[in-house]
Design a binder for these strands. Sequence first.
DNA 1: ATTTTTAGACCGACAGTCGGTCTAAATTAT
DNA 2: ATAATTTAGACCGACTGTCGGTCTAAAAAT
Lengths: 209, 209
Amino acid sequence: MRITKEHDDRKKEILDTAERLFLVSGYEKCTVNDVINSVGIAKGTFYHYFKTKEEVLDSIVSRYREKVVSRAIGVLMVDDISSEEKLMRVFMAMQITNQIDTGKFSDIHKSGNALLHKKFLNQIIIAMAPILVKIVENGIEKGVWSCRFPLQYMQILLASSLTLTDEGIFGLDADSQLKVMGALISLLEKMLNVTEGSLVKIYLKGQEQ
Amino acid sequence: MRITKEHDDRKKEILDTAERLFLVSGYEKCTVNDVINSVGIAKGTFYHYFKTKEEVLDSIVSRYREKVVSRAIGVLMVDDISSEEKLMRVFMAMQITNQIDTGKFSDIHKSGNALLHKKFLNQIIIAMAPILVKIVENGIEKGVWSCRFPLQYMQILLASSLTLTDEGIFGLDADSQLKVMGALISLLEKMLNVTEGSLVKIYLKGQEQ
DNA sequence: ATTTTTAGACCGACAGTCGGTCTAAATTAT
DNA sequence: ATAATTTAGACCGACTGTCGGTCTAAAAAT
């Protein structure tokens, strides 16, 4: 069989480089020439691996989405923790994914890049809303919660948290962002009709570590 | 042929034309040549009035924001209606501004235009959140509501409603959008600790007309 | 020998520039 | 008052540099 290892290596190399450059200077400002010069390849090579510049962006966003989703699935399968714990872990995993791992995406919200943000938001909401809904419905079945609009509430939660914590859009300082996060958790309690403070408690516990 | 016009008239003519074209084909796809051909002016004239293409976009968004804000201020000053009524009117005025008036902006959410959406979202949240907070605080003083995070809640409300009803981002059908709107109103009731259904009632009454 | 990968010269479309023209009103000279 | 001159700024379109993307052919791998 054909050996595609080198092909994938090269492709990953282009993706990694483009990702780094997109996050530093923004997708629009970063040119294809910047990418190929940084990788050390020619134009033709770049377009052998990717049809367009935007396809590179799409790949980067998809790769990130896959990482977030697989992590969430991992939490989902842990079955010796409460629904509250599970929901908060998944929600928080999304937020802190930036810091852990390679740290590459720590600036994803700082890019001030409209297209990147739009694609990112779109993919994350479409992929994550059903997962969060599953947890919510599980909690409802157990009788610990009640919720009239699970899907809509989770969409609202995702859209607002991802938008408001994007520094490229509002440039909120760290303190304001923390306030928004606190408000979001308290809102989540209202969404699920749980006693005030029960989720915040888990949130603060998670923040400490 | 040389047709000269008053400065402000010409500027408005360029803005109106660009606005129309941006909303039809999107900001990125619409070229400066498209605009000048449609207006019937030369390149130099366009750049006599605007420094860059993006400056035109900024002007269009600002103009729209001013319209929404002035309308909200109008509602704010009506003082023979309840806080509930006032809040809902302002919130709904934002949504339906698209249909009324010239109808120009009816497609603003369909453009699928990342930069337009980002600038729009940014301006509207920054301008409208304080106005909504004012109404909320007024209701709190009257003793009809209570709310721990007025500013954060209004930011969340604005960010999620504007993002999720943007067809360019999620392409939700009309039915799904209505569900999201319903969920948002019910969430607003929870935010303000009012009895369930009291705001939805006003919302539905407003929808009928 | 055939396919895959690499190379970089090349292309058209684009945003933005530049030197200059035209016109009407304000200013000065007759 | 009327004519000549200056000035402000609206207007023009050929031109430039940059960018995403294409093309053809050489090099390398199989």
